[in-house]
Amino acid sequence: MLNPRPPAAHILAFAQTLDGGGVEKALLRLAGGWAELGRRVTLVIGDVAGPLSRDLPDGVDVRTVGTTSMVGMRAIAALTESIDPDVLFCPGNHYTALAAWTRLRLGTRCPPIVAKISNALDRRDHNAPVAAAYRTWLKWHPSFVDRLVAMSPAMADEACTMMGARRDAISVIPNPVPRPLVATAPSVVPRGRFLLGVGRLAPQKRWDRLIDAFADIDDRDVSLMILGEGAERATIESRIAARGLGQRVLLPGHVDDPTPAIARATALALVSDFEGVPGVLRESLAVGTPVVATDSSVAVREIVTSPAVGSVVVPGDAAGLVAALEHWLEPGRSRPQPVPQPGENAAAAYLDLFDHAVLERRFRRGLQRAA
């Protein structure tokens, strides 16, 4: 006997690029998990060129828009109408404008929209006018998003406050755990003790902050390696040269799986202005590598729960950052015990949510027809 068709049998998700961002990495892992669990998955990608193209999962239909601009990505509305999925998944804050556009264009023809909150909603990097406009934009989200997903309880609470969303409209689902790859440690991993950064070379990550702090560390036997690629490479290289660190700082670029390098690092640093639930912190603690992180999200202190596993500093506290780094770089410093990561069943949890969203939409429409 054939199994009945699940309510959310066909899932459509989208992203601009496959350049290596955490949002896109998580999306590909989720899409692969959904396909493995028997759902039809369509990914609409602006441009599939990029290091994450190697991670495109089997069994997933990939459609390309041919442009990475947000204006060009508005084609997602027409594609959603022609593809006719059961549910539309928006993988992060950056993309919710496209979800809003799709709902506006399609109206009642738009499938239920499930949107993941991928970054902090309280953006301390914004000036006053931008912050006010952003708060207004966030308050609109419950009008076009059917269900929200937060990656931690604290982020769900923040969504209630910043978006005015009902708590029962927010599900807490961690990102899926990365699958280990074979022989992916970069050959340029420094010998001896080294500090590691992992993430896109983008302004948000504030690698300039880490480079300046590293230059002020007294111990000259320590190296710094930053794994990632992005538009800020030339600016970062210039800063490294200006601080006279050319022999001590390495920028190998993107690696498919940073876990082997994380496991060998003396400590991992994440010094961003803003984050969501930083997966790299969880990945680091999972292999027993201590972390130093800026207080860039309400979720950071949910991950760094004790001084025994890492240090949290205020963004902009240069002296505090140097002190925290020197603490964990001290020779002989004990490493924390590995902390298991959540998210093993993330793909299945999303499918339950998608099915619920589709059934809820059908129920509401049934009531409207009966009225």
Rank of each mutant, 00 (worst) to 15 (best):
G46N: 02
G46T: 01
D47M: 00
D47T: 01
D47I: 00
D47N: 11
V48R: 15
V48W: 02
V48D: 10
V48I: 11
V48C: 14
A49F: 01
A49V: 02
A49H: 13
G50W: 02
G50I: 01
G50M: 01
P51E: 09
L52P: 06
L52W: 05
D55I: 00
D55Q: 14
L56K: 04
L56W: 06
L56R: 07
P57D: 06
D58A: 15
G59F: 01
V60C: 09
V60M: 08
D61F: 02
D61L: 06
D61W: 01
V62F: 07
V62H: 07
V62A: 07
R63M: 09
R63W: 09
R63S: 06
T64W: 00
T64Q: 15
G66D: 10
G66V: 02
G66N: 07
G66H: 04
T67L: 02
T67I: 03
T67K: 05
T68D: 04
T68L: 01
S69K: 01
S69D: 13
S69I: 01
S69R: 10
M70G: 03
M70N: 09
M70V: 08
M70S: 09
V71S: 14
V71P: 00
V71Y: 11
G72H: 06
G72E: 11
M73N: 11
M73L: 15
M73V: 04
A75Q: 15
A77S: 12
A78F: 03
L79M: 15
L79G: 07
L79N: 10
T80G: 09
T80E: 11
E81N: 11
S82D: 12
I83C: 12
D84N: 13
D84T: 08
D84I: 00
P85F: 06
P85D: 12
P85H: 10
D86C: 04
D86E: 12
V87D: 12
V87P: 09
L88M: 14
L88I: 07
F89G: 04
F89E: 12
C90P: 05
C90D: 15
P91R: 07
P91M: 06
P91G: 04
G92A: 10
G92H: 09
N93C: 05
N93K: 05
N93W: 01
N93M: 12
H94W: 04
H94N: 10
H94R: 15
Y95P: 00
Y95R: 08
Y95W: 10
Y95Q: 13
T96C: 06
T96V: 15
T96R: 14
T96W: 14
T96Q: 13
T96H: 13
A97R: 13
A97I: 03
L98H: 03
L98Y: 04
A99L: 02
A99T: 13
A99Y: 06
